[in-house]
Nucleic acid binder design. Structure first.
Length: 355
DNA sequence: GATCCGTGGCT
DNA sequence: TAGCCAAGGAT
């Protein structure tokens, strides 16, 4: 490294982090899981929990869940001791439910270890921690120098260096450029500063270059059209599937099942259905004979397909007149349905059936 | 590398 | 408003 004055660094690998951290010191967002710029690192448990919740999920959606989780399970030992079903129900509505299953597994592993490992490589071995989350926790909770690359960083770096190669093929190149501007110190602040910049300034549409601390270094801005970066491959169109869900009611209770496996909504409580998740085109066959009535249609869009869910309702008459219609479920009091932890699709279906 | 896996906010 | 997309991970 050639000589350069700290006040006016000439090399981009020094100028960019210096400018970004200076901006962050004044403009950092205040978030429930975050320490102030320059402050000691926060509790690794809270950093980890927030990072998992924030995977593909907006800050606005995460905030209430983070508050509820930390109030109910204030530390790793409390979460490790929680029944998995309670955690799944508490996660309901947040989506990507494999995160909740891995959250419980991870909590139990970490509790058995006596605490979180403090290195990126060890963190990476834990369930639910991929390259991004391991780097983020290492940097934010343990002040380890780690190259943290999420969608924000991909966007900022793609613009800063005007990377023409489209995602996802450009990931390796983006990682190398990100590494070139990641400082040796203040790793956590740098990572969070990149995310704040990507979230509030270097936004997907109409980036606010006039407010950007990196604008003078930005090749994307110099190109005249920073919004053109990152270049992305066209995405596939979502097919539409049809399915049917069944509202079976008796004695002010409804029959709920718990979904098996790790597929769609795996491990979550739900209404019985006709297998649309696996079959792609549900048979519509009810699980038992009776006077079924159409309660309506729910339209719901998942990550990779849209669903038109027909909701069929059966009010089976005299209380206690029949045995359970199926094995593997439970009668749930309808006035306590909010506590069942139904994923959003089935919460919509239940709302329809109760009208 | 490609595919599967949710949801809600924003424009 | 209908589409776009967000602090990704597992397989």
């Amino acid at each position: 490294m050639t000589a350069s004055t700290p006040s006016a660094p000439s090399d981009i690998s020094e100028a960019v982090p210096a400018a970004l951290l200076g901006w962050y010191d004044c403009h950092a967002r205040t978030l429930p899981w975050r320490a102030a710029p320059g402050a000691p690192a926060p509790d690794p448990y809270r950093v980890w929990l927030s990072e998992v919740m924030l995977q593909q999920t907006t800050v606005a959606a995460v905030k209430p869940y983070f508050e509820q989780f930390t109030a109910r399970w204030p530390d790793i030992d409390a979460l490790a001791a929680a029944p998995e079903a309670d955690v799944m129900a508490a996660w309901a509505g947040l989506g990507y439910y494999s995160r909740a299953r891995n959250l419980v597994r991870c909590a139990r592993e970490v509790a058995a270890l006596g605490g979180f490992p403090a290195t990126e490589a060890e963190l990476r071995k834990l369930p639910g921690l991929g390259a991004y989350t391991a780097a983020a926790v290492a940097a934010i909770a343990f002040d380890q120098r780690a190259v943290v690359v999420d969608a924000n960083v991909e966007r900022v770096v793609s613009r800063l260096f005007a990377i023409a190669e489209p995602l996802p093929g450009s990931r390796r190149k983006i990682g190398e450029f990100a590494g070139s501007i990641t400082p040796q110190t203040r790793a956590g602040d740098f990572a969070q500063a990149m995310m704040d910049l990507g979230s509030g300034i270097c936004t997907t549409r109409e980036p606010k270059c006039l407010l950007c601390p990196l604008s003078s270094h930005c090749a994307g801005r110099a190109s005249g059209n920073p919004s053109a970066f990152p270049v992305k491959s066209p995405k596939a169109v979502k097919p539409t599937r049809q399915g049917t869900a069944f509202w079976i009611e008796r004695d002010d209770a409804v029959w709920l099942v718990t979904r098996q496996g790790s597929g769609m909504l795996g491990g979550m409580r739900s209404l019985p259905d006709d297998g649309w998740a696996a079959a792609g085109d549900g048979s519509g066959m009810p699980p038992m004979p009776g006077q079924w009535e159409a309660a309506g249609l729910v339209r719901h869009t998942f990550s990779h397909f849209a669903l038109e869910l027909s909701v069929q309702r059966l009010r089976s008459g005299a209380p206690g007149s029949a045995a359970h219609p199926m094995a593997g479920g439970e009668w749930w009091p309808i006035d306590q349905l909010a506590d069942a932890g139904l994923p959003t699709l089935f919460a919509k279906a239940a709302r329809l059936a109760r009208l």
